[in-house]
């Protein structure tokens, strides 16, 4: 839920990166963190296991600038991708303003993508959201790997409602900011209506 603070003149929005395990959600955040000026970001908090798999969530606040005298601050979260962390995923979707679905483009991860996408819809529904009504972007990650499914086929399989689709290689930053911009823009556009 967007939080508008007239006292500090801030708009705070929550964006969640969703997707199957090891698809690159944390890598997206890490790239945004590494490429952003220190004054525009807070700490990157990672609640991870000893093997660096996200246990609860990763989090970073990001300031994008000022709209109509209000500072816009985006709270970026990732969810843990592994199937058995579903309780954590549900919690993190509470109060969400926009979602990025990070798909793993490798052929052998197609089933995991589809399962995670169903899981996203279910978990959104359980929090009272409808994916069709929510700012949403699809990112096709790991496009640099040799065994990837062609973009057209992957889009055909995973696109839900004509949302923007971006090819990405999160580890070198390709497509990371395009994805973020697309979802942030949708979230701010939504503010005009609500």
């Amino acid at each position: 839920m967007t939080f508008i603070n007239y006292a500090s003149r801030e708009i705070n929005c929550k964006i969640v990166y969703y997707g199957p395990g090891l698809c690159g959600k944390t890598t997206n955040l890490q790239h945004i963190y590494d490429s952003t000026a220190p004054q525009a970001k807070g700490k990157l908090i990672s609640l991870a296991t000893e093997t660096d798999r996200t246990l609860f969530f990763d989090f970073m606040p990001l300031e994008l600038g000022t709209v109509r005298g209000f500072k816009t601050r985006f709270h970026l979260y990732t969810v843990p991708g592994q199937v058995y962390y579903d309780a954590s995923r549900k919690l993190i979707l509470k109060g969400v303003d926009g979602v990025v679905f990070v798909a793993d483009s490798q052929e052998e991860r197609m089933d995991a993508n589809v399962e995670s996408l169903y899981n996203l819809e279910d978990n959104l529904q359980s929090q009272g959201y409808d994916l069709n009504q929510l700012p949403y972007v699809l990112q096709l990650n790991k496009r640099d790997l040799p065994n990837v499914i062609p973009m057209h086929d992957l889009t055909h399989e995973l696109q839900k409602k004509g949302e923007p689709v971006f090819e990405a290689v999160a580890k070198d930053g390709t497509g990371v900011f395009d994805t973020l911009k697309a979802v942030a823009k949708q979230v701010l556009t939504e503010l005009r209506k609500t």
Partner: peptide, 15 residues
């Protein structure tokens, strides 16, 4: 569907 924004007015903030 996204929810309505949560709006904090200056007077409430001071309280």
């Amino acid at each position: 569907m996204s929810q309505s924004p949560f709006i904090l007015q200056e007077q409430q903030f001071l309280k």
